[in-house]
Amino acid sequence: MTAPLRLVLFDVDGTLVDSQASIVSAMTASFQAVSLPVPDRAAILSIVGLSLPVAIARLVPDQPPRMQARLVDGYKQAYHAQRLQQGAAGSPLFPGARDVIDRLHATPEILLGVATGKSQRGLDALLEVHGLEQVFVTRQVADHHPSKPHPSMIATALSETGVAPGDAVMIGDTSFDMEMAQAARVHGIGVAWGYHDRARLAAARKVIDSFDQLPGTLAEFWGQEHE
């Protein structure tokens, strides 16, 4: 019997790559450029995963739309400048990520995808710098969807790949990822190394502590080993 196609969707910031230093630095530069008090580190990391306009609105709900838009633009400019300067060093892959991605990518019935609050430009640049351009068959970004936790990204990924919800998982480090998975009726796997603590991942079916636990967790869900 032919194994059904499975879809493994990854969040990016805080799940695949550790970009917190770049995010905090770019947000700091954006706020300083308009002479507003810079939110503390915890506040900045708490909104990672949301689409940028939504994230900024949460950080400064009392600021008018025009100022929020300036902060969005300032963040984009600062982050882009950092990416050009630092390359892969600005957003390194988490330990074990590459090995597990390669292992899953080599499994014929498994398709890999991305569902991220990053822009198309930002995601494409990140994948290029890490040599992952050919790995992800579906890439859902903030440019084309409502912000997480709306299920639009996952629904589109399922439609593009033809995979049923029960044969798909969403892997992420934030409550937004797990709530999105729940809304889309796919399995949610939380990761403990990201930017939301374990207590905020209550909607996850399971939380893992390292990348090497992922293949076994998928095997549990799907009743098969991925050797």
Rank of each mutant, 00 (worst) to 15 (best):
Q85S: 02
G131C: 13
T107G: 12
R139A: 05
D143R: 08
P149G: 01
R98F: 04
V135Q: 10
M153A: 02
Q134C: 11
S147R: 00
M153R: 00
Q86W: 01
A97L: 06
L132D: 06
F94M: 07
M153T: 00
R121C: 06
S119H: 10
T156N: 07
A78P: 02
H144P: 02
T107F: 13
I101K: 11
K148L: 02
Q77R: 14
G113W: 02
V135G: 08
Y79R: 09
G122P: 03
P146K: 02
F136N: 10
L127N: 04
V141F: 07
G117W: 05
Q85G: 00
H105L: 12
R121N: 11
A89Y: 02
V100T: 05
A125N: 10
M153E: 03
M153Y: 02
A78R: 14
V114D: 13
A78M: 09
V137F: 06
A89K: 11
P92Y: 09
I110V: 15
T156I: 04
T107S: 14
A106W: 14
V114I: 15
S119P: 05
L93M: 09
H144R: 11
E109W: 09
R98I: 01
F136R: 08
E133C: 11
Q77H: 12
E128T: 13
A115G: 05
G96P: 09
A125W: 08
G87R: 01
Q120H: 14
G90N: 06
A142C: 06
H144L: 15
P151M: 11
Q86Y: 03
E128W: 08
A106S: 15
G96E: 05
L123H: 07
D102C: 10
H150Y: 11
P149V: 00
A81D: 12
A81E: 14
Q134R: 13
P108G: 15
R98E: 02
P92V: 03
S147N: 01
I110N: 13
F136S: 14
H105P: 07
T156F: 04
A89L: 10
V114Q: 08
L104A: 09
G122T: 00
A125Q: 13
S152C: 15
Q82C: 01
L132M: 15
H144Y: 14
G90V: 03
I154D: 04
H105E: 11
G113K: 04
Y79T: 02
H145G: 06
V114W: 08
I101D: 10
L104W: 12
I101P: 13
